[in-house]
Computed example of a mutant assay.
Amino acid sequence: MTVLKVGTRGSALAMAQCGALAERFDAEVALVPITTQGDTDRSSLQQIGGTGVFVSALRDALLDGRVDVAVHSLKDLPTTPAPGIELVAVSKREDARDALCARDGLAFADLPQGARVGTGSPRRMAQLRVARPDLEVVDIRGNVPTRLARAQGDDADLDAVVLALAGLKRLGLDDRATDILSLVDFPTAPGQGALAVEIRDGDGATRAAVVKTDHAATRAAVDAERRVLAGLEAGCSAPVAAHAEVADGMLFLTGIAYATDGSTRLSASHAFTLDSTKPADLAEAARDVAERAVAELLEGGAADLVHEARA
């Protein structure tokens, strides 16, 4: 049997989530760790740009044949299609919420005045400042264990860090969460909690081996979310949140743009009644709700917020 070479970032989280997904492929697989710019450059995401820094090296490996499949955290995937590459599957989403991991078991509301909270995400920075202007938000980078140690290690220098709950669960570290942050106050990054499976265009054999991992409802939801990013011309590191879900015969979407300092928050929520859950109907729903949300956000001045965040 031909072994399918599956490319992934080499972090413990990336290897764990890719390995779990690859078990469902209809092929024998070998994981191939690939080092990306985001793994070696410890500058803040705002400084290095964010867009593509965790993806480009994997795509290069796919195009030059070193791997047959590339698996990404979908929230890292640029919204612009890559020539020669097909997004063949989007995995069923894990819990999309963010988690607070604090010292002494503290919940978010119980953090003391002026508490130091770490995150490398401009979106999370803005949300923390909206919810608790008194907090000192600290820009941090590193893998999940490294960031956890900043708040819960022997030499901790922070009161808390904010991480994706999905990543904690995939590493078996969800018991380190001291509070789960609601999607109402902390809507997440487009695609958070889902994985993207990419192959080379025209590779029918590989497509047949991996396409079963595509989850139609998740794909529609993240398509709507990513269309908000694209419509605002915002990158993966922009202070933009979007969360969509398919439920009760409808597709619901909320998109939010923030000023990084937390001073401004623009929100738009829309829904589409589904005729069916066929891929074409789901795709139409994703386009419709995203277009309406983007139009409302742009009318409210979201483009200015995105531009200011880049400056």
Rank of each mutant, 00 (worst) to 15 (best):
M1N: 07
L4C: 08
G10F: 01
G19H: 10
A22K: 14
E23A: 14
P33T: 00
T36L: 06
D41A: 10
S43H: 12
Q46H: 14
Q46C: 11
I48F: 14
G52E: 01
F54H: 13
L58W: 10
G65M: 08
R66I: 07
P78E: 02
P78F: 05
T79S: 09
P81L: 04
P83H: 06
V88K: 15
K92P: 08
D95E: 13
A96D: 06
D98Q: 15
A107R: 15
D110H: 15
D110I: 04
L111T: 07
P112A: 12
G114I: 03
V117Q: 11
S121N: 11
S121C: 07
L128N: 10
V130N: 03
V130K: 05
A131G: 12
P133W: 15
D134E: 08
D134N: 07
E136I: 11
I140H: 11
R141K: 11
N143L: 08
V144G: 11
V144L: 15
R147N: 05
A151M: 09
D159Y: 06
D159E: 10
A160M: 03
V162R: 09
G167Y: 07
L168A: 05
L168Q: 08
K169P: 06
L171K: 02
L171R: 04
D175S: 14
T178R: 14
D185R: 15
A189R: 14
P190T: 05
Q192Y: 06
A196M: 07
V197W: 02
V197H: 04
V197Q: 10
D201K: 13
G202A: 11
A208D: 05
K212Q: 13
T213K: 12
D214T: 01
T218I: 11
R226Q: 15
L229V: 01
A230F: 01
G231W: 03
A234H: 06
S237K: 11
P239K: 02
A241T: 00
A244I: 00
E245T: 13
V246W: 00
D248V: 14
G255Y: 01
D261N: 03
T264S: 11
A268P: 05
S269I: 01
F272Q: 13
T273A: 14
T277R: 15
A283S: 02
E284I: 00
A285Y: 06
A286L: 02
A286G: 07
A290G: 03
A290L: 12
L298P: 08
E299A: 15
A302M: 07
L305W: 02
V306R: 13
